[in-house]
Amino acid sequence: MYKIVHKEILSEVILLFEVQAPQIAAKARPGQFFILRLDEKGERIPLTIADTNRDTGTITTIFQVVGRTTREMSKLNVGDGILDMVGPLGEASEIENFGRVVCVGGGVGVAPVYPVAKALKEAGNEVIAIIGARNKELLFWEDKLAAASNQLIICTDDGSYGQKGFVTQAVEQVAAAGKIDCLWAIGPMPMMRAMAATTKPLGIKTIVSLNPIMLDGTGMCGACRVSVGGETKFACVDGPEFDAHQVDFDLAMRRLSYYKEEEKRAEAVANCQCGGDGQCHG
């Protein structure tokens, strides 16, 4: 069991858990993720590592409630345990001194971009962090991103906080003010796709972190395959970070939606009278 030692409700749908996982904490590097299974009947889902604390042996993950597993997880409290956690998984970000770099976090993607920004700043880069969300309520970790960057730009779609507009517009402004040597963009697929479309004509090297469906997370099953530069790659062992300008986002988005019907059914069963044994939902 991996014990939850801290829980924060960051917004109505976004939660933060700090979990006791000393081995993962000791080894995790920016860009990597882990897979958890809540209980014996649970599914394996990948989540991002937003922070690690080697002194306390804990890792921090931030997740959005999007389905049955994340909803069940949101009900756990400090002191509760998670049955299985395996990680770190995936290749770490390639951190070097690029010069002037931009780190963009969209929505819940603010969490995984934080360790990347922090490492880039420590490596000597000038880091411009851009974080965005639909509205102020959904924004979190402004303070941490401010500390991990030289400049922080906040965007909300509705203008309820920071500047009104999308993170892509903020990137265009930053690019107009000076050369961007490298850019990380982590967030929902449509946001990463839009970012790739924005930076490609500007010739900015852009890295995205993909979050496909995964099972084992160690290169055994191929559930997480994505097309990058026309070649099939396994996000769990070849990624999760890829050159944004090579990624087939449309394919990646379609693959993410393959189990929509089953996800609905799993949620429906959780909320019905039969107690989840499928009597009333087949």
């Binding site: 009947k41 394996r44 099972l215």
Partner: peptide, 29 residues
């Protein structure tokens, strides 16, 4: 890479290891 094309490893892992044949009692589809 269309949806619906599985590797045998993925298909069998879902069914065997994750007990997808008992979905939705077991949560892996």
């Amino acid at each position: 890479n269309l949806n619906g094309v599985y590797s045998a490893n993925e298909f069998l892992t879902r069914a065997n290891l994750m007990k997808a044949y008992r979905f939705p009692e077991y949560l892996t589809p």
